[in-house]
């Protein structure tokens, strides 16, 4: 991983950590049993985005082709 990317990732993780900390100081109005807990959105976002990438990559492995459509 090149340096700039690593730096960006560090910065983002720090921001995320700060946001999670801030989450402890606001009153959450969760609607379901888990989504009101502090920091839920952070880990759920990580998992959700990762899942999305995995799903898309898997789908791409199966059905992505390098040639353009026949009559595009």
């Amino acid at each position: 991983m090149e340096r700039s990317r690593r730096l960006a990732l560090m910065a983002l993780l720090v921001v995320l950590a700060l946001l999670v900390v801030a989450d402890f100081f606001v009153e959450d109005h969760g609607s379901f049993w888990i989504d009101g807990t502090p920091g839920f959105a952070a880990w759920f976002g990580l998992v959700g985005a990762a899942l999305a990438v995995v799903l898309a990559q898997g789908w791409g492995l199966l059905l992505r082709r390098t040639e353009e459509r026949a009559d595009d």
């Binding site: 990317r5 960006a8 990732l9 983002l12 993780l13 921001v15 995320l16 946001l19 999670v20 801030a22 989450d23 606001v26 959450d28 920091g39 839920f40 959105a41 952070a42 880990w43 759920f44 976002g45 990580l46 959700g48 985005a49 990762a50 990438v53 990559q57 789908w59 791409g60 059905l63 992505r64 082709r65 390098t66 040639e67 353009e68 459509r69 595009d72």
Partner: peptide, 30 residues
């Protein structure tokens, strides 16, 4: 705050897996 966490978390994943998301010429079967 909830939304920001979600978005920043997604950004983290983006930076992490950037090469995977590089656009490639081609098409996806549908």
């Amino acid at each position: 705050l909830f939304q920001l966490q979600l978005l920043v978390a997604a950004s983290c994943i983006f930076v992490m897996v950037l090469p995977l998301l590089r656009p490639r010429a081609g098409s996806t079967l549908d």
